[in-house]
Write a protein that binds this DNA or RNA. Structure first.
Ligand SMILES: [Mn+2]
Ligand SMILES: [Mn+2]
Ligand SMILES: [Mn+2]
Ligand SMILES: [Mn+2]
Lengths: 218, 218
DNA sequence: ACTATTTTTTAGTCTAGGCTAAAAAATAAC
DNA sequence: GTTATTTTTTAGCCTAGACTAAAAAATAGT
């Protein structure tokens, strides 16, 4: 059994090595967890002792198969609970992350099995992220960032990179949610900003906005 | 905000002072929490500093109004989650206590409000215990222990005192659940054992069994 | 009332998981 | 290739929450 702190580290390392390949640095972990590098080093050394990850001094950490299993189980729980909160309790997609951050640590395999069934074994969470199955396998969607599209290309929103309430509320205001079609009408190469069309509306988006929205090109 | 350990102490003290009136001893707390008296003393002193309880050295602890509020909120969460697990996920009543022990610590007032609505604002949990409302008020049922009944009296099962899987499984085997009518056919005053009638079955129960079943006399 | 026993608190130690400051290694600049 | 800078680790300290052993208070026995 792993402690709350250990589970949070494992999950963070898992997410970090999804984006960048190779070992993840203790600094990157500390940054991502809002803690200090020295704390991350301590924890990484402990997790290496427990064979959850491999760690080479000054080189960084990499989850073992064992570590990945643990991580995907936590991610599965997080995302299933998010579906529960939105689908069953009527929460809005910008309100569920913090609560799921706690619920993901409830230990009971039977619970997660039954929750999954209760929810109809969903494949995606409310933010468009795939839910790993009981073996840790999950769909790797072919998705791009909106910022990677060029003028006159279009895509369908399939998820968000950031899921802060502020960002999700912005998207709501602009009537963008999962499944929404977006046309790129113009792109400014100087700062990466765009003019996009959503439904009947046309408006300007900054690079920061476009950098956090995943789309599937059509 | 209170830590996991603090919350568990507060809840335990709340339950202890439900049964016995007056201050609860650090030893009673330690016993009930499966820890040592010295640890209980430390925690009680800390909770006294936080005005969660009043504490007089060598005399024991008593929750303040503030402490009782915290306690009933936790109890409310525990019991609502138990209802969720049984009613929505199909768990059996002997499987839910441990899981609810974790779920009761999830911090979100919005969550508990929505969960309550989702469940139809239940008044009792799967073990027959009343669920406090959002203000901490709950029904104080007029219930006796089965062991308090005498020969030829009868009652309806309204709850259990102990909710260990072993005990609940015993009750299942004997077809006793909430709402079941029980007739006392005989009582042995030497050891408190009884012969009872449940449906068409008649059988012997020890004092230990009868001491953990709540009934409402009819 | 005095002693013996039980209950409760205190003192001191341990581990998990943080932190800061200093040291060491890796990387970048010349 | 040496020096300067950045990254990473180590050393030492802190708090929460446990524990054991010893001390102190309360209670019981005579
Ligand atoms: Mn978490
Ligand atoms: Mn999500
Ligand atoms: Mn608990
Ligand atoms: Mn219960």
């Amino acid at each position: 059994m792993y402690s709350l702190a250990e589970e949070n580290y494992i999950k963070t390392i898992f997410h970090l090595q999804q984006t960048k390949s190779g070992a993840v640095s203790t600094n990157a972990i500390a940054d991502s967890m809002d803690t200090k590098a020295s704390s991350a080093t301590d924890m990484v050394q402990k997790l290496a002792d427990k064979k959850v990850l491999s760690y080479v001094k000054y080189k960084g950490a990499q989850l073992t198969e064992k570590g990945k299993k643990i991580a995907t189980r936590i991610v599965r729980k997080h995302r299933l609970w998010e579906v529960f909160l939105v689908d069953k309790l009527g929460f809005h997609w910008d309100e569920v992350h913090e609560i799921a951050e706690q619920l993901e640590h409830i230990h009971s395999t039977e619970l997660i099995k039954r929750l999954d069934t209760f929810l109809g074994s969903p494949a995606f969470d409310p933010h468009g992220d795939p839910i790993p199955d009981e073996h840790g396998n999950f769909i790797k969607t072919e998705k791009k960032l909106l910022s990677q599209l060029n003028k006159s290309q279009s895509g369908v929103c399939v998820g968000v990179k950031e899921s802060s309430p502020e960002y999700l509320q912005y998207l709501d205001k602009k009537k963008i949610s999962i499944g929404t079609k977006i046309n790129v009408l113009g792109k400014e190469f100087f700062d990466g900003s765009m003019v996009i069309e959503v439904g009947r509306d046309q408006f300007f988006v900054s690079k920061k906005i476009a950098d956090n929205l995943y789309v599937q090109t059509t």
